[in-house]
Amino acid sequence: MTDDEYLWEPVPGCWSVRRHSEGPGPRATLLTGTGDWGRDAAPAPHPSPPPFTTLAWRLTHLSEMLTLRADHVAGSHTLTRDDYRVSGDAAGAVAAFDAGAAAWRQALLCTDDTALDKVGHSTYPHGSDPEDVFIDVVWWVNQELLHHGAEIALLRDLFRARRH
């Protein structure tokens, strides 16, 4: 994946990752994450209709979700969106996704059957995790990976097939 593909905005008004110094994109009110780059976001209520999101937005969303949920299951239970480093380039984003997936996998491997039925086993603060049975959280993470992973695959196909 190239940086051009990673940051490609196929339609006007996309949410993406941007330099903090440039500020948020259209209909976004903030950039989440630490470092030079952040991901477009807005507090609830979110814009309606939802903005179209770039491959960069989707990949960093997944990476952040995996990293933070792993931390809130088997780590320090302290990481927030403001602690997550958003990558402004494709290589960094792929590496961050790999690290997040490995952390989530390790958190699941350390989870016993009793924890799967425990309410609040994940203390992740940006969802209903503290009120949910952990197996439902695992199901949700799988749905997010399938959903956004398919979108990323489609965007890669569209980028490859676009007319220059």
Rank of each mutant, 00 (worst) to 15 (best):
S63R: 05
P43Y: 02
A102F: 07
A95P: 06
T53I: 08
F97T: 03
L154I: 13
R39H: 08
R162W: 04
A150C: 11
A42H: 04
E144I: 04
P24N: 10
P26G: 07
T78R: 14
L158S: 10
P43G: 03
Q143Y: 15
Q143D: 15
L31C: 00
L158G: 06
P130L: 05
R160L: 09
D98S: 03
P45C: 05
A44H: 08
L116V: 01
T60M: 11
E144H: 08
A74Y: 05
A95Y: 02
G100N: 02
L145F: 07
L79W: 03
E144C: 09
E64D: 12
A161M: 02
A56G: 06
P43T: 07
L55G: 00
F134Y: 11
P45F: 01
A115P: 03
R81L: 11
A96L: 03
H121E: 09
G75C: 08
L62R: 02
D157V: 14
H148V: 02
L146S: 14
E64I: 07
D129N: 14
H164S: 15
P45S: 04
H72F: 05
A99E: 11
D112C: 13
A161Q: 11
E144N: 04
C110Q: 14
L62F: 01
V138A: 00
R85K: 12
T123G: 07
T114D: 15
H72S: 06
W140M: 15
V138R: 01
S48F: 13
H77R: 13
A95G: 01
A96C: 01
T29S: 14
H148I: 07
L146R: 15
G75A: 06
E64Q: 15
E22M: 10
T34I: 01
D117S: 10
R69I: 12
R27I: 05
G100A: 00
G75N: 05
W57K: 01
G149A: 07
T78W: 01
G127Y: 04
E131N: 12
P47Y: 10
G38I: 09
A102E: 12
G75R: 02
H46N: 14
D40Y: 02
A150K: 13
H126M: 06
L30F: 12
L145I: 09
T60I: 09
A102C: 08
R163G: 07
D129F: 06
T111G: 09
G35R: 00
L66K: 07
R39D: 09
T34E: 08
A44V: 12
A115H: 07
L158T: 09
G25Q: 00
G88C: 04
A115D: 13
A90Q: 09
P43C: 05
W139I: 13
T123V: 11
T80C: 04
P130S: 07
T111Q: 10
R85Q: 13
K118T: 15
D132K: 14
A74S: 14
G127A: 07
H77F: 02
A42V: 05
G88F: 05
G149W: 07
W57Y: 10
A90M: 02
L158F: 12
V73G: 01
I135K: 12
E144Y: 03
H61M: 11
D129Y: 11
Q106K: 14
N142K: 12
L155S: 13
A44Q: 12
G23I: 10
H148D: 05
D157H: 13
L79Q: 05
W57P: 07
P51K: 06
T67D: 00
C110T: 14
H147W: 14
R69K: 13
H148S: 04
L108A: 00
